[in-house]
């Protein structure tokens, strides 16, 4: 696991008690901590990519981390185009991978 949540014991900020939460990502449960963004939950659980680009079908996750690059877009509870780096996770959130978004267009280009 590359990206990860810092373990409470080792964390110099001395965190208080965490309130765990679980979201469902493409059908799989992923656990995180209340107060984390969706990106924080995903990265904390070792997932670094959760979107497929429109044109090239390449994997993407967080790049800018502050809501500017739109690489981290996910569908949340049926609503597309939510920036995972900004949206706080809620227990039970259903997150679905976005993309590629040009199926129809590729047909037209044929």
């Amino acid at each position: 696991m590359t990206s990860h949540r810092i373990s409470a014991e080792a964390d110099p900020v001395r965190p208080g008690a965490d309130r765990p939460l679980t979201i469902v990502v493409d059908g799989e449960p992923v656990t995180g901590t209340a107060g984390q963004t969706l990106a924080g939950v995903l990265l904390g659980a070792g997932r670094r990519e959760w979107r497929t680009t429109s044109g090239g079908g390449a994997p993407r996750g967080v790049f800018c981390g502050i809501g500017v690059c739109f690489d981290c877009l996910v569908e949340v509870n049926g609503l597309r185009d939510v920036r995972a780096c900004l949206r706080r996770a809620q227990d039970g959130d259903v997150v679905v991978r976005q993309g590629p978004d040009r199926a129809g267009a590729q047909e037209a280009d044929r």
């Binding site: 590359t2 990206s3 990860h4 949540r5 810092i6 964390d11 900020v13 965190p15 984390q36 963004t37 990106a39 924080g40 990265l43 904390g44 670094r48 990519e49 390449a58 994997p59 993407r60 996750g61 967080v62 790049f63 800018c64 981390g65 502050i66 690059c69 780096c85």
Partner: peptide, 25 residues
Amino acid sequence: WQLPGVYSAGAAQALAKGERVAVGR
């Protein structure tokens, strides 16, 4: 630079400060 695992410096900072997430080892 488009590969997952490449972050802006600000992202690494924001994830560390706001999430207590390490972007890597």
